[in-house]
């Protein structure tokens, strides 16, 4: 029989992970791993580490520094509804609201959506655009790294042995920034993303772009930042950039493929159009 462990405290969970790091697969809401288990029962782990009992990983807190900490076990429905998130990090509320269906959002957690490490996940582009940091714990202690350094390859992360994600940290967004999120899915709801963009575009006093961040899903083997594009836009007026140039810049940043859901050509074209739309108008969808 498969082992099922449900610790009550984070320390207990980290000790279990530390003792036999390869033994357990972590399960929170289970909305991804249980589907995977059904489709590929042969890949089932020796044991499951159910972290749903770790109440310290749940919840959203706004600190005096203005930062926001979202516990990894916070369900997406709570992220979607949270007043602070909606007011100051609205893209995160928007992405949580289009992750699966409402019933999925009640179980699925923000940490799980990230650790599942799908390039098509809905929340990573937003965390990339906000320049979030990710909090990683092990029996040995806690570290915080930029979320943009978290994904190491297709469905791989930098999580080391005995480590788990415990929270995400978001800094305040510069005033007057344009914020944009758009998920292009296979249909209007309950869809997996074909191309997704979250963008935060701050402006200097002269109206030029200063420190824009473009987080994409489904256009590379991991969720990714369009760094080349952002760098090339620095100091320019958003309206002065033709879409042809954006498309050429994005070639450096993304590597979309054709699969069962879409084509590489379509993804490439739409990615450029989304960037252009983000530069022109704040837009939630």
């Amino acid at each position: 029989m498969t082992e099922w462990r449900r610790p009550r405290h984070l320390r207990e969970a980290l000790e279990l992970l530390g003792e036999s790091p390869d033994r357990y697969r972590i399960v929170a809401g289970g909305t991804d791993v249980m589907v995977e288990r059904h489709l590929h029962p042969e890949n089932a782990p020796a044991g499951w580490l159910d972290i749903s009992g770790l109440s310290e990983l749940r919840g959203i807190a706004r600190l005096e520094t203005g930062e926001l900490r979202v516990g990894a076990m916070t369900p997406l429905s709570a992220v979607r509804e949270d007043a602070a998130v909606r007011e100051s990090w609205p893209l995160l509320a928007a992405s949580a609201a289009v992750t699966g269906a409402p019933a999925i959002q009640n179980r699925a957690t923000l940490g799980g959506n990230i650790c599942n490490a799908s390039p098509a996940a809905d929340n990573p582009p937003v965390l990339l655009a906000y320049g979030a940091e990710i909090e990683i714990a092990s029996a040995g202690g806690v570290r915080r790294i930029p979320y943009s350094a978290f994904h190491a390859g297709y469905r791989r992360t930098v999580l080391g042995q005995g480590e788990m994600v415990t929270g995400l940290w978001l800094k305040p967004v510069p005033r007057g920034s344009r914020q944009y999120f758009r998920k292009v899915g296979t249909r209007a709801a309950q869809a997996i993303t074909k191309v997704g963009l979250a963008a935060v575009v701050p402006f200097g006093p002269d109206g030029t772009v200063r420190g824009a961040r473009f987080g994409f899903s489904s256009v590379a083997e991991t969720p990714c930042l369009a760094r080349t594009t952002a760098a090339a836009l620095e100091g320019r007026s958003p309206l002065a950039v033709p879409s042809g140039e954006i498309g050429a810049l994005l070639e450096q940043d993304i590597a979309p493929i054709s699969d069962l859901r879409s084509t590489g050509a379509y993804r490439r074209q739409v990615a450029a159009r989304l960037v252009r739309e983000a530069l022109q108008a704040g837009h939630f969808q």
């Binding site: 249909r187 209007a188 709801a189 869809a191 069962l260 859901r261």
Partner: peptide
Amino acid sequence: VVWNGSGVMANDRLATYIIPTSAD
């Protein structure tokens, strides 16, 4: 319906065979 190399439906899951929802 997407066919695999053997002429069988490749998108054999509701995640990949897309039908309308009420939102559509």
